[in-house]
């Protein structure tokens, strides 16, 4: 494919982020930036702090130290629904959908941040709220069409197979029309065909809507294929940051993935942490 993608300014900048739970240091002094319209892959062995990183970005975790600059505003941490309102949408490693609700309803909840009228207005004035509802429905239908999930529009998501649930979750994040989309292992547990579909959707999202995407993924092949840039975390530290080719040949990265013992930083716990199972 001939790409004429234009990677723009810095959208999100993380500086010296540190985060610990009890005595475990999940992230230490991590800094990197996400630029407009790019697909950034975040990789690293198990327990390297990838999910924590996403949780910091969308405000589920509040870092102990560091600064987050998003859309030019610098702050110490984010709040989840504030992050959502500012255009950060995400999916979860273990699908967090509203299981009892239909696909359509799930996707419609993604429109919450787009609500112009406040809740009481919604409850009291059916007229204008209805018109707004129609607009939201149209936006939701476009996403349904985009993700080719028309057939399951009215199916409660709890009854869907895993791969489709992942797709619905992506749909919910997309209807928010996010500026920054965070994907936590979007292809975990999928078969080859489902992975290919998901890859295509991610690339199409990036391409069609110009959405900036930061994704965590275990499947190295996938990450290297679709990312414009890759950040590698290990032991809660950033060990590499660059184009897929640069990262692929980086000695630290190779060591980390092969589990070669290296200088353990003083603030990281010994080897009985989840880090003990490096990915092949």
């Amino acid at each position: 494919m001939i790409s004429n993608k234009h990677i723009g300014e810095v959208l999100l900048k993380l500086e010296d982020i540190s985060l610990s739970f009890g005595g475990v240091q999940a992230l230490s002094n991590v800094s990197f930036e996400v630029r407009e319209h790019e697909i950034l892959g975040i990789i690293g062995p198990n327990g390297a702090g990838k999910s924590s990183m996403l949780n910091v970005i969308n405000g589920f975790y509040h870092p102990d130290e560091g600064r987050i600059t998003y859309k030019g505003t610098t702050r110490k941490d984010m709040r989840p629904h504030e992050a959502a309102r500012q255009g950060i949408a995400r999916t979860f490693q273990n699908i967090a959908l509203f299981k009892g609700m239909t696909t359509l309803d799930n996707i419609m909840t993604g429109r919450n941040t787009k609500m112009r009228r406040n809740f009481l207005w919604q409850a009291l004035y059916l007229g204008p709220a209805r018109k707004e509802e129609m607009e939201h429905r149209e936006a939701a239908e476009r996403i349904i069409d985009f993700l080719e999930i028309e057939a399951i529009r009215k199916t409660p998501v709890g009854r869907l197979p895993y791969g489709l649930q992942k797709r619905v979750e992506l749909g919910r994040a997309l209807t928010a029309e996010p500026d920054l989309l965070l994907l936590d292992e979007p292809m975990a547990g999928m078969n080859l065909e489902e992975k290919e579909d998901m890859c295509r959707f991610i690339l199409d999202v990036n391409d069609e809507f110009g959405t900036t995407i930061a994704l965590i993924e275990h499947d190295m092949g996938v990450v290297m294929d679709i990312s414009d840039r890759v950040v590698v975390l290990d032991y809660g530290r950033k060990i590499a940051d660059g184009s897929p080719d640069e990262v692929r040949t980086n000695q630290d990265v190779i060591d980390a993935y092969l589990g070669v013992p290296h200088d353990i930083p003083p603030d990281t716990p010994p080897d009985d942490t989840p880090h003990a199972n490096p990915q092949p």
């Binding site: 967090a96 509203f98 009892g100 909840t109 919910r172």
Partner: peptide
């Protein structure tokens, strides 16, 4: 719909704002 969403999954509800 938001009410039902919250009933279903707090964290997911937060993430969609």
């Amino acid at each position: 719909r938001a009410l039902r969403a919250v009933a279903d999954d707090h964290q997911a509800a937060l993430s969609v704002g």
